[in-house]
Computed example of a mutant assay.
Amino acid sequence: MENNELLSALMNRYFDFASDCVECKVQHIALYMLILRHNGGSAAKNKLVLSTADSMQTLKIGNRNTYSNALADLEKWEFVRILQHGKNQFQPYVIELCLFKSEQALNRQSASSELALYKQSTGNDQAVNEHRTDIEPALNRQSASSEQSVNEQNFGVSKTPDNQHKSPFPRAAKELNNNYLNINNSRELAEELEKEKIKKKEKEIQQKFEAFYEAYGKKVDKLRALKIWQGLTEADRKFALADAAEYNRRHPDKQFQKSPAVYLRWKNWEDEKPSQQQQDNSRWPNGLKKIIV
């Protein structure tokens, strides 16, 4: 009878919680019901061993992470306590139920009834005492856990010793934290320096283009010429800038000059330069030379 009352109390508490918890999913409900079934109606059991593979098959859960996360959530919500984690699907989880004070009273009644029935069936006081030693540690641990939970909920104070909350290596943890902050700061500084470097490079390219465009004779299609200029290598920009004034001298008539965009696209600074005699002869038809009297 007491076992049924205990199971009813556990289920009622869980479903009251689940109705108000948006994070509670169907796998949480199914898993908790499976735990109560394995418990056999006696929360006084010291440990419950859950086979990962069998539990996943029973609950139709295909992903082990889903199963592990559901158990972790039940522990976070203080319905179970995980004593041993299953590292893979072949290793079981070892857990025990978490009880409130009202549930502990029912649990102790259930444990007393269980001992009485055990004594009646065995008639051996020594066996009863051994069975009591198996049950009482779980009852005491559940009682202490419940008292701590009540204190935390009512007063926001945990009775866990302070040294359990502190890192065993506070200096190392602080150094790691500082190193992490330094790495983040260094990364941000490097990104800022890279941005400044890019801006400086873009400004330098723009200034050199303005110098080229100013030296070039024909002033058309500036934006298209700038786009082509930006795609040139640094060496090509130097050659184009050095040849701009020379190109004007070779082609003094702007009407017959190429646009700066065409000049840059076809890299006309690489063209063969005519000799001085060829340039002089090109000024007179039929190769005539100017006669100075």
Rank of each mutant, 00 (worst) to 15 (best):
Glu192Met: 15
Lys174Leu: 10
Ile29Cys: 02
Ser55Asp: 04
Ile205Glu: 04
Ala173Arg: 11
Tyr32Pro: 03
Asp134Lys: 10
Phe15Ile: 04
Leu71Ser: 01
Gly62Tyr: 08
His28Pro: 02
Ala127Thr: 14
His85Lys: 01
Ser110Leu: 09
Asp134Gly: 14
Gly231Asp: 15
Ile228Tyr: 12
Asp271Trp: 02
Leu97Cys: 02
Leu74Pro: 01
Ser68Lys: 05
Val157Ile: 13
Ala53Tyr: 12
Leu117Ile: 09
Phe209Asn: 13
Ala144His: 10
Ala235Tyr: 11
Glu2Met: 14
Val94Trp: 05
Gln91Ala: 03
Asp20Trp: 14
Gln126Cys: 10
Lys25Met: 07
Pro274Arg: 07
Glu270Val: 03
Met1Val: 09
Asp73Met: 03
Asp73Tyr: 02
Leu189Gly: 02
Asp221Phe: 14
Ile35Trp: 11
Asp221Asn: 14
Val157Ala: 15
Leu288Arg: 00
Glu210Cys: 09
Asn179Gly: 13
Phe239Met: 08
Ile95Met: 03
His85Trp: 03
Gln126Asp: 07
Lys258Gln: 13
Lys87Cys: 00
Arg37Met: 07
Leu36Pro: 01
Gly231Thr: 15
Ala235Asp: 03
Gln257Ser: 02
Trp266Val: 14
Lys227Thr: 11
Asp271Thr: 09
Leu34Pro: 14
Ala111Trp: 03
Gly86Lys: 02
Leu139Lys: 07
Asn268Leu: 03
Ile198Lys: 12
Glu136Ser: 12
Glu75His: 03
His251Ala: 04
Gln27Lys: 01
Val220Phe: 09
Phe212Ser: 02
Asp125Arg: 12
Ala53Arg: 12
Asp221Tyr: 05
Asn151Val: 00
Ile82Ser: 04
Ser102Thr: 09
Leu7Cys: 08
Gln153Trp: 13
Tyr67Glu: 07
Met11Gln: 08
Phe256Tyr: 13
Leu193Val: 13
Glu130Val: 10
Val22Tyr: 06
Asn163Glu: 05
Ser19Arg: 01
Gln279Pro: 08
Ser158Tyr: 00
Arg132Trp: 10
Gln142Ile: 14
Glu246Lys: 12
Glu130Ile: 09
Leu189Asp: 07
Gln142His: 02
Gln109Trp: 14
Trp229Val: 15
Val157Trp: 12
Arg141Gln: 07
Val80Ile: 04
Pro137Gly: 04
Glu78Val: 01
Ile29Leu: 03
Leu176Glu: 00
Asn107Gln: 11
Lys199Cys: 00
Val94Phe: 02
Ser8His: 10
Tyr263Val: 06
Pro260His: 01
Ile135Trp: 01
Lys101Phe: 10
Ala70Leu: 03
Phe212Glu: 00
Lys25Leu: 06
Leu36Thr: 06
Arg141Lys: 05
His38Cys: 03
Phe79Gln: 00
Leu99Trp: 15
Thr66Met: 04
Lys222Gly: 10
Asn107Val: 13
